[in-house]
Write a protein that binds this DNA or RNA. Sequence first.
DNA 1: AGCAGCAGTGCAATCGGTTGCAAGAAATTG
DNA 2: CAATTTCTTGCAACCGATTGCACTGCTGCT
Lengths: 335, 335
Amino acid sequence: MATIKDVAKLAKVSPSTASRAMHDNPAISEKTKARVRKAMQTLHYAPDFNAQSLANKRSNAIGVILPVDHHEIFTNPFFLKVLRGISEACYHAQAMVNLATGSSQAELLHSIDIMVTQGMIRRFIVLYSEQNDPILLKLRQLDAQYVMIGKPYQLVNETPYVDNDNILAGSDAAQFLVNHGHKNICFVYNDLKKMVQNDRMLGYQRVMMENGLLINSFELPAQEYPGGRQLVIQYLTQHPEITAFETVDDMLGLRIQQVLRSAKMVTDRQVSIIGFNNSVYSEAAHPALTSVEVFPRRLGNEAAKIAVSLQMSENLSTKLIVPHQIIERHSVATV
Amino acid sequence: MATIKDVAKLAKVSPSTASRAMHDNPAISEKTKARVRKAMQTLHYAPDFNAQSLANKRSNAIGVILPVDHHEIFTNPFFLKVLRGISEACYHAQAMVNLATGSSQAELLHSIDIMVTQGMIRRFIVLYSEQNDPILLKLRQLDAQYVMIGKPYQLVNETPYVDNDNILAGSDAAQFLVNHGHKNICFVYNDLKKMVQNDRMLGYQRVMMENGLLINSFELPAQEYPGGRQLVIQYLTQHPEITAFETVDDMLGLRIQQVLRSAKMVTDRQVSIIGFNNSVYSEAAHPALTSVEVFPRRLGNEAAKIAVSLQMSENLSTKLIVPHQIIERHSVATV
DNA sequence: AGCAGCAGTGCAATCGGTTGCAAGAAATTG
DNA sequence: CAATTTCTTGCAACCGATTGCACTGCTGCT
């Protein structure tokens, strides 16, 4: 591997000049820069990241923080897609991607500490958004910068983030059902404390109100909760008027679908479903779920682009909204 | 942050002695080592990874190579679980985790090149196994070490890897069905060129032969292939004797299940299914699929442990087989 | 006593970059 | 033409570690 000294020698300048030329320092004349660039070319020069990080006291790597272990994460392809987007952007920006996960919060906090203090990583992407997240606090304490995927709960104005417009997505989905003639639509969620879910529900509510329709909602607890099935059956029998569900995630849609198919009492009832995230679940379902694609890869990509461009003392925060799109399959019928 | 010089000063030794003491160099007396250790403690010393990497010409990071983009990867939670396992082991070994992905092979190759030449990363974990993989060739050319997840196709003896015993898993699954009284069992696969699938089928065949039963197999192409559904229907009608399927992945089991439920002609036929990987699909299915858990997290964890322990010129390769386990749900009935 | 041998430690160079400061060269000014 | 300013560039220190080699004392031997 050629070093900067080799380049300097070939270009007949000192290493310092070479270094400055490479960083397009205005103190260096265009002529010299050209010579240095040529030398770099012929030697296939590429800087040593570790040496750079050492000298700069700042790594070129981007830290990626996954949420603390949880059944959902493992099964949710969302994160993998986001990772791909991040990886792609970092590739183009010549940045390395450094992963941080932990089975407990303490472990994750420690990981991050190490990345910052020992690895000199200064820019992070946080793949989730949670209320009062100690991880974010830690990052701030360590004086590291971060961009979030999902809208932050705190310091909204100071935090760069990329997200979907979940309110709009929620209303688009509802409007889609309304356009198909549905009037009694139920919104199904998991945990309204999560902003994504809450926002989607707000969007749903807006459309219902605009159309003079009644708001119905139903909380379907996480899969592990055993009584879930029974709850669905109960809800369906108590609300015979409902013809469509808007579920905050495809998974919930799939579960409703399964209940419908197996519970004899409601077997001949035709119910439409629209889900979110366009995940494996929507394709696995039968009929395949119509779903709102949120483009996780794009989310990751944009987040990474912002992260790599973060300067040392940047404090204008970028906010970026990536669009969503309804993917029509076969789970929504016209009434 | 305290540096090694601070530690040295406090312990009243030179930085070189401090460094040697930290690495448990036999040239340093026990007394001195103790002094250095105490100094490290009181100063909360932690080495600067970049400085170390620079001096050692070798990063403490482990590179993790995901397969080139492909629909499967995005939807397959397997990889995320493996990543968690890797991350965990690396955390305990004080190693960083560096991700490499690419949307094309060229991009991935280039990524790896950068990681090795510019990042000084010398140890990798390859999360998949493919025939004639140029990535592996590249790694060898760059003189990097790697451990694979999945059995390698080439250089089997020289390559450290961790894998399940897929032949055994294949026969355990078959035996499970046989034990439940099934005699006409069909093995469903996707692509026999993949060793995982081939091995599982071998295991299946062995059990069938041992029990004097007929071997049946059926290739169900990838989800995107439109005619798949029709193929299943056709197979089912042509083989009315089949009472159970062993599918090389849960996904395939789910698809068969769906066909069974929707195709009127076979509607009252009772068919048992056992799948592999214990993925989201098995829980999403109804009835939930009995499936063979392969412990992806453990696979990742062990692979990482091997990777971090790889020495510079190591050439004894470790092979590690992680066990599997049948997770009983409701998709296998006794006949 | 003299000297070899060895254990224990420090000096100084090195890894591959970056950057403050000074100095030389060129251009401008009176 | 000398003096001053403005560009360019190089010197040398530094980032935080590692390591070959030399040096100091001490032990033990003859």
